[in-house]
């Protein structure tokens, strides 16, 4: 009797356990990039394209100059954010990620992808570009320029401004003389130069 109860329990247990499926592993919820059969138009999936003309409001009120670099007088000549060392360092990091493949780390337009066949962009140290306002670069990143695609979907606006500020700094750095360097830092530069 005892043995048969034990046997029945074993059978019951095995039936219960064998019915363990993968349903907790794959739950009926909208995962990222999952196909979404309830979407009627042709791009299906949970990663939906933005409706045309949509404007992000996550940063609060919409400031047209911040988003477009356009002012009533033309392209912005000043940044809409305070230029701090932090902003420039962020700009340098983002420039190196997104821009250096073509524009090169020093901005001369001979980046790795250009060496692989991408048409060569103008050097940021051309007199024409050195004279361009900071908004020019923000506008190029936002809307694309020539063969360069827009980076608006990849680089958020504050980072685009940081990169634009860094490009202006890069231009200054490649056209600077020792007299532009604060006196307290000159010695360190000369030592580095001599040891090269």
């Amino acid at each position: 009797m005892k043995a048969s109860i034990g046997f029945s329990l074993l059978i019951l247990l095995s039936l219960l356990l064998s019915s363990c499926g993968m349903n907790m592993y794959d739950q009926p919820k909208a995962n990222l990039y999952a196909a979404a059969p309830y979407v009627k138009d042709k791009v299906v999936g949970t990663a939906r394209p933005l409706p045309e003309g949509v404007v992000s409001r996550e940063r609060g009120a919409v400031d047209p100059t911040f988003y477009t670099a356009l002012t009533p007088e033309g392209l912005a000549t000043d940044l809409p954010i305070p230029v701090t060392m932090e902003v420039l360092e962020r700009g340098q990091e983002r420039y190196n990620i997104y821009c250096s493949p073509c524009h090169n780390f020093n901005g001369n337009g001979l980046g790795m992808i250009v060496q692989k066949g991408m048409p060569q962009p103008a050097s940021f140290h051309d007199p024409r570009l050195r004279a361009s306002p900071v908004g020019y670069y923000y506008n190029a990143m936002t809307n694309g320029f020539g063969r360069m695609f827009s980076y608006a979907s990849r680089i958020p606006p504050e980072d685009r401004w940081a990169i634009a500020a860094y490009i202006k700094a890069l231009q200054l750095s490649q056209n600077a003389s020792l007299s532009d360097v604060p006196e307290s830092l000159r010695d360190s530069l000369e030592v580095q130069g001599a040891s090269r």
Binding site: I113, K116, M118, F149
Partner: peptide
Amino acid sequence: TSVEVAAAANIPPTETCMTCHSQIR
């Protein structure tokens, strides 16, 4: 692009591929 700010490291859209491959190969 989203790896530093989101749960998922996004799979790039075709636009990212075409940034270079509209010119290369």
